[in-house]
Each structure stands twice: as structure tokens, then as C-alpha cells.
Design a protein around this nucleic acid. Sequence first.
RNA 1: GGAGGGGUGACGGAGUGGCCGAACGUGCCGGUCUUGAAAACCGGAGAUGGGGUAACCUAUCCGCGAGUUCAAAUCUCGCCCCCUCCGCCA
Length: 428
Amino acid sequence: MYDLRLLRENLDDLRDRLGPRGKDVAWQELRTLAEDRRNQMVQVEELRHQLKKGSDEVARLKREKQSADYEMAAMKALGESIKEREEQLRLVEEQLAHIALRIPNVPHASVPAGQQPEDNLEVRRWGTPPHLAEPIRTHWDLGEGLGILDFDRAVRMAKARFAVLTGMGARLERALINYMLDVHTTQHGYREVLPPLLVNRVAMTGTGQLPKFEEDLFQVRDEELFLIPTAEVPVTNLHREEILPEERLPVRYTAYTPCFRREAGSYGKDTRGLIRLHQFNKVELVAFAKAEHSYDELERLTSHAEAILQGLDLHYRVVALCTGDMGFSAAKTYDIEVWLPSQQVFREISSCSNFEAFQARRANIRWRPKSGKKDTKSEFVHTLNGSGLAVGRTLVAILENYQQPDGTVAVPKVLQPYMGGIEKIERS
RNA sequence: GGAGGGGUGACGGAGUGGCCGAACGUGCCGGUCUUGAAAACCGGAGAUGGGGUAACCUAUCCGCGAGUUCAAAUCUCGCCCCCUCCGCCA
């Protein structure tokens, strides 16, 4: 969502900067509507001003025990005409919002141009692929072989794209969640949050999931509530309609939540295994920062997500998404991709974005400078978030990268305290 | 789910139709006083949108949305949320 005055005055500039990202935007209509809105607003204001003065005049006449019949009749007529014009204005604003809420964020200057994932820019790699004996097994073969992963039975109580973890599989997932939360809270300075998993429409609109992506969300029947697709939604909305004092910034939260996604339009993709499910666990990092610090914060937040992979000794790379591959609300995104030996590819395990003021404008999240003097006008914060990490995919990476020739899986050192001290997952 | 009470500015809390953007208090900012601070006293200060180069002007905002009226924080209706008690329940 954009500031409407900026929108009107910098429409061409905005269109240029969006480039192909703005190809679906009705620019001409937008321009007309923005002009209409301003003109009609000026008129309505003027008429309202007259109405107010007229009403004051009626009050004065009545106080002086004079007849006010003429004025009252005139004001009645004026009031009706205002009502009509306001209705027109409301319509224009509605149409304007309909378009404006569907305009994606403007990419930061440092974002590589491009349309395809191939146009993404690799910025660094860490570690090396493990030396594994052939045959290299997939995580679903390993998991089912060890009896810790069950896809078939998940269909009984749910449907395809759900999974059941049992035994040491469930334990490993829980260990990962605890490990990640512990690192972020004790080493990286994040405050832990356990938010609602159902949120309302306003919250979803604030972070940008709505109105454009409603078909990607699970919705509760009979009530206007949605299952969260990411903890980003409830945690960013913690400060909706708030003005944060300067000394509180930056604010950093971490949250473990299950996430729910319809995965509409992904038929045939990643149909096997834990990679793409309707429900998965994620530890999220969320930050609120001043504009001048938000890109430093993005680097920091990304490094915090990387720290988890480094602790687990998993090979990964970081890529800067190109303009065409970025999400709707993001101004810049780094994806962290972990090495999956079974497919010999890097797969996304974290996505870290700076939304600049895009979400803050929609959710009305501001901060106010400390100085008590003049110039204490509030400003929009910049919001950021990133996975730290997607837990299910981390479990996948561990199964595949730590697999042994006999089909067992070694437990990474840092997780052993969370796994009751065991060093290896065996069939049980 | 049932019964009752309530949603006003950063906070507390007045205000039941017109000079109310809203008393008063606390907190905040500036000043006087003081070696400095506190206290006391004086003064200032809401948010958002629109117009204007600017000083400034203007509209809207008393949970949200409709309605009545020349005029609504105040009256009517609907909705949302919070609190207390009862029921149910992890």
C-alpha cells in the first residue's frame, strides 16, 4: 500500500521502479482515481465547512430567540447534497484502495533484475557437501526405513501433503525447535513469542497476504479467521496501530509456530517427502527497525538464520532473489538454500526479507523520535522477517546429510543434548 | 451459550444534543526559581487526510458501521471488543 499523495505525485516514477512487477496494475485508472479523489475531497470539505458555519448560525439565532427556519431549510438541502458527494467520494476511495492494495513493493536498488529463479544472485556459500557412500537415500526412504516418518497414515486423518512424525522423528523435530529458539533468544537477542495461529482479515491485510492471496490460505468456517501461513503475520501485527518509542528500536522477536498453506497451484511439485506440506513448523525471526538501519538489520537477521545451519554443520548458500522472484511485500530478499544430497541441489530453507515501510503503512506501525523538541513527527518503521529456520526442511537436510551407509542417521553434536544424549537414530 | 456492566487523548477520568478536539488530574516538553535536582509556579503539546512555496487554512477522528437532526462523544439500530457472575470446557 502506498501513500496516496505520493502515489498521485510520483505515479510514473513508481511505475518505472516497479518495472515488470507492476505489469498487472491499472495505471491509467489509478491516475484518474487519484485525481478524482483529491478534487472531490476538496469540494466535500468546502461544503462541510459551510454546513458547520450554517449550523452555528442556527444555534446563534435560537439563542437570541430569532427564527432560524430559513437557515435550517438551507442546511437540510446542503446536507443532502453533501451526502451524495460523499457517497461518490467513498466509491472512488474504494476503487482506489482496491488497486493500491494490490500493488507490490518496490525492489531495493541492490536487487538483481530478472524474471526467473536462474536470475537470482548467489552471494556466498558455506561449508562443503558431505562425502556420502552410494547409494544416497532420499529423506523419505530414510525416514520410512527408520520408522519415524509416515505419509500413508497421515492421509487417514487428513489428506495428501500431510505427514506424521513418530518416535525419534518427532523428537528430532522438537529438538530442532528448541535448539533454534534457544540460540535466537540467548545468543541473538530475540524475545520469544507464542502467538495465535488464527488471525483476522485486518492482520492478514497488514502484512500483505490479503487481499491478493486469499486462495493460498486456509480459512475457518463461519468466522472471519484464517490459519497463519507464517508467524510473520501475528508477530508483525503485534504492533499494528502503534507508535513505538525510539529507544525501543530495534525490536526483535522470534516465534515458533506451525504454518498452514493451501499450496494452490503447486500440483505435481515436490509431491513426495516433507518439502512441501499443508502444515509445517517454522521458527521465525521478526524485526522492527528505523529506516536508516533496516538494511543492516537484514544482513544481521540473515546471519542469525545462517548461524543455525552453521551450528548444524549443514552446507548452504545464500542467494539474493531477483526482482521477478521476490514476494509481493518484499523490497529485498535473501533465500538461504541448504544442500540436499539426494537431489544434488540447494533447496530453500529460509527466506529473509526487508519490507521497508510497505507493511508498516498497511498495518500503521510507526516510531517517534526521542527528542522532546520540535520535529517529533512519527515515521513508519521498517519491518523485516526471515525463517530461522523452516523446521521440517531442516529435518530433511539432517536426514539426508547425516545418513550412514547402514540407513541410520547421525545426530548433529549440537542437537544431542536435546535428544537425550543419543548420537544416532536407528530403527526402533 | 445465559445475565449484567463497560469501551473518551500517552494514562486516569469528566462530559446525555449546539462556544466540546473534548474539563480536571498524572505523565511529557519549554521556562521561572535553584550551585544542580526535586517541589512550586507559568506556558506548551493529539492523530490522520486535503489545500498552500510558506505562515497558515481546512476536513475527519470520543470501539466500528449505519440512522435521526440544521447540528451527535451525547439520541436510535446493528456489529466488534473488554470486564463480572452463571453454565460448559483443555
